[in-house]
Design a protein around this nucleic acid. Structure first.
Length: 491
RNA sequence: GGUCGGAUGGCCGAGCGGCUAGGCACAGGUCUGCAAAACCUCUUACACCGGUUCGAAUCCGGUUCCGACCUCCA
């Protein structure tokens, strides 16, 4: 077992990773708030943490991987006021909030499956852990670090700050938080209930029309956003566990609040390592629902978006994500996706040729060194781009040997074959026999057929044009004419 | 306004004191009936200005841009 190194946001340095219990790792990752279809931004974290999980497993750890589903507590709009996100969506769609949650949990998991992201060991829902959250709030109150106000409960940041450091994860200083706020809106409604503007809600009193509400010692209400992760991680991983992951945008306030809550309730911090991945950007800006620049995953798969002329498959998307280091921003564009797709194809083509390589008595290359480089890169703070570069090196060896321009011994061939299985397929979770990403070729084929048919139509050869349409329809592909041209879909 | 981070060749992206990744694109070549694929070549790009050093894309100081967070976000 090699020594894994990991950047810990808490220390802002790369540290050797050692688990609390030898051979076992507990990992908690913040999952989605299920009030809308998954977009590209939802995709990076799960892939990154999936690869890290697989790395840990590869290194012999037994991993309990918990990723939550937030189906209550996330509010629309500013600060602690506003409508629950799920409730709002339910109102818009005229269905039950839990129906909204179920719909988007399903679509999220469908995307995860498509991208070959392993399902979590446990996938707890916030709404299923109201009791645990209430209990945790009670212990925070008991510790004197939270107070009730008008049926709501708030975390007392000022009191907490006396013995602890609120801001240790995000590097924030409380005084600056108060002074800062270039946004005046946080001084608006609901603030009067709080002792201090930066106190955050643990429990919110529900107004009568609020559908999602539960009984509590403080009356009818619902939990605040941050408390769910603290309560659920403690329940399934213990009050102290190894790794907590999430996006950098959750660093503050979400993760900072988690540390404060857990420390208040358990007298020690929850996680030893905090792992944060960076954002996917588009034209240099974060992709976010609120910025209205998001691309839905389904739009990416289908190519159904103004920025895309065609679709890209899940294996390509996964490869695209892994070609950048997880702590760097990754800029999205069709051009970048195309580059990834072609690179991936090159790798796949080469790997297919392994079995055809005739072994020689000596090798031109130092295969062992390259393979070792892959592992070294992965255990060094999950440097997937370096690992992929080394895979390309291996692909080159295969191609050259296949062309009789270089030699590989039998043991080197075996070495490459097992490296592909272990690193490319196993840890990075990429599909080596990929058939799903043929959309590009399919699109081109369809373009040709559509073109031929349109020529036939212009020559008034309707027998031929109809034959094309009908025979495609028999195969489940439907052509649709409009004045903008002909589009197609697979039924 | 505060805090933190970033600026790398046409594009995407590693590297973070000397050995100058990788992919894609472009161009030339080998191979080939023609293509395609594959292979080879495409011989140093690191925002700007100073400094430290035998040596800096990498360290320090300054400048200019850009971004994230400070409000829900993956």
């Amino acid at each position: 077992m090699a020594q894994i190194k990991l950047y810990n946001t808490l220390s802002r340095t790369i540290e050797p990773f050692n688990s609390l219990t030898p051979g076992r790792v507990g990992m908690y990752v913040c999952g989605p708030t299920v009030y809308g279809p998954p977009h590209l931004g939802h995709v990076r974290g799960p892939i990154v943490f999936d690869v890290f999980r697989r790395l840990l497993m590869d290194q012999g750890f037994q991993v309990r991987f918990v990723r939550n589903i937030t189906d209550v507590g996330h509010l629309v709009g500013d600060a602690d006021e506003g409508e629950d996100k799920l409730q709002k969506q339910a109102r818009l769609e005229q269905i039950e909030p839990m129906e909204v949650a179920q719909t988007y949990t399903d679509s999220y998991n469908w995307v995860m499956d498509a991208m070959n992201v392993m399902r979590p060991s446990i996938e707890p829902k916030a709404s299923g852990h109201i009791i645990e959250q209430i209990e945790m709030i009670e212990s925070i109150i008991h510790a004197g670090l939270a107070y009730e106000s008008n049926g709501s409960v708030y975390f007392d940041v000022t009191a907490y700050e006396k013995e602890h450091n609120y801001g240790k994860l995000s590097g924030r200083v409380l005084d600056e938080l108060i002074a800062g706020a270039g946004n005046a809106s946080r001084e608006l409604e609901g603030q009067s209930e709080k002792k201090s503007a930066h106190d955050f809600a643990l429990w919110k009193r529900a107004s009568p029309e609020h559908i999602m509400q539960w009984s509590s010692p403080w009356g009818k209400g619902f939990p605040g956003w941050h408390i769910e992760c603290s309560a659920m991680s403690a329940k399934y991983l213990g009050s102290e566990f190894d790794i907590h992951g999430g996006g950098m945008d959750l660093l503050f306030p979400h993760h900072e609040c988690e540390i404060a809550q857990s420390t208040a309730a358990h007298k020690h911090e929850p996680a030893r390592y905090w792992m944060h991945h960076n954002m996917i950007t588009i034209n240099g800006q974060k992709m976010a629902k609120s910025l209205n620049n998001g691309i839905k995953v389904s739009e990416l798969f289908e190519g159904n978006h103004p920025l895309l002329t065609r679709g890209f498959g899940p294996n390509t998307l996964r490869f695209f994500v892994l070609q950048a280091h997880y702590r760097s921003t990754l800029d999205f564009s069709q051009e970048a996706l195309e580059a990834s797709e072609k690179g991936l194809k090159r790798l796949l083509e080469a790997f297919k040729k392994i079995d055809g390589v005739v072994p020689e008595s000596e090798s031109t290359f130092n295969t062992k060194e390259i393979v070792q480089n892959i592992e070294n890169a992965l255990i060094d703070d999950l440097n997937t781009p370096i690992a992929i570069a080394q895979l390309f090196e291996l692909a080159k060896y295969i191609n050259m040997a296949s062309d009789k321009k270089a030699k590989l011994t039998l043991s080197d061939i075996d070495e490459i074959r097992s490296a592909v299985a272990r690193y490319f397929g196993g840890i990075m979770g990429l599909n080596a026999q990929d058939r799903s990403d043929d959309n590009g070729a399919m699109n081109e084929v369809m373009d040709i057929l559509i073109q031929l048919r349109s020529e036939a139509k212009q020559e008034k050869n309707y027998a031929l044009s109809d034959a094309i349409r009908n025979r495609l329809k028999d195969k489940g592909i439907e052509l649709m004419d409009s004045k903008e041209g002909t589009t197609w879909k697979i039924n």
